[in-house]
Design a protein around this nucleic acid. Structure first.
Lengths: 123, 123
DNA sequence: CTCCCATACATGACCTCATCATATAGATAG
DNA sequence: CTATCTATATGATGAGGTCATGTATGGGAG
């Protein structure tokens, strides 16, 4: 927001919520990072573009540390080595906390929007 | 997310959207920063606590630069000097763009949440 | 009278989340 | 041979936000 010509009101700085998105994708089945990126692009958030690879890989590493996912190297299948991630029980619990938090947040956003529309109409 | 014991899934890192909140508050009438902070605490987002003063003052300065608000010093009324902000037409337009962006974002969140609940229930 | 506290504005340091740029390397098509 | 897709990874940077601290006014308690 410091030097920007573009105002954040255009929505391009709104969070993509990489972490919960990854957890959702992994809750459906094991995946490696690159494929996961493809899945995330099709998820509702992120306007078809999906979060950056850098963020995905770093988040996966962090989630592995936290015990939310486990990783195994797949050198069998053709192509470069793939690191396949699988969600754990702790990961599922984390996801269900995310659902609570995001739902609460979304309700707040809804109330904020009603407030905004009300004040905008009153002119 | 680097060293944290607390997982962001608890929701304490979700944006408070300082900028649109300020615009909403100012759309109702002129205010100075300190009073504004009080208003923001009562707005839906921010779980009663409201955004930090530092963020508010800096955002106000930035919005003045952008022409979304105008400021006048009030040294008449008792107490320390107050900088009173008033929303401009450009500010109202910015707010209405925020409404569009946030609404879009909120819909995305809704779809994401449905997706998450579906995958969580399917176990 | 002095000290504390509420009011009021402001800035430096820092954290989190995300993206951009770049590096590596295996496999495959032209 | 080289361009491209697949696949993982890291350094630099930016945006948005909080914490800590510094300034100053003015009223009330002791």
């Amino acid at each position: 927001m410091l030097n920007s010509q573009t105002c954040p009101c255009d929505g391009n700085t709104l969070d993509r919520h990489v972490q919960p998105s990854i957890l959702i994708a992994l809750a459906k089945g094991p995946l490696h990072g690159y494929r996961l990126a493809g899945q995330l692009a099709e998820l509702p958030l992120g306007d078809g573009r999906g979060p950056d690879m850098a963020g995905i890989y770093r988040t996966l590493q962090w989630m592995e540390q936290q015990g939310f996912v486990t990783a195994t190297w797949d050198t069998e299948t053709h192509g470069p080595a793939k690191k396949t991630y699988q969600i754990t029980e702790a990961g599922r619990q984390c996801l269900s906390r995310w659902v609570k938090s995001l739902d609460h947040y979304r309700r707040g956003l809804g109330r904020l929007l009603r407030e905004a529309r009300k004040t905008l109409e009153a002119d």
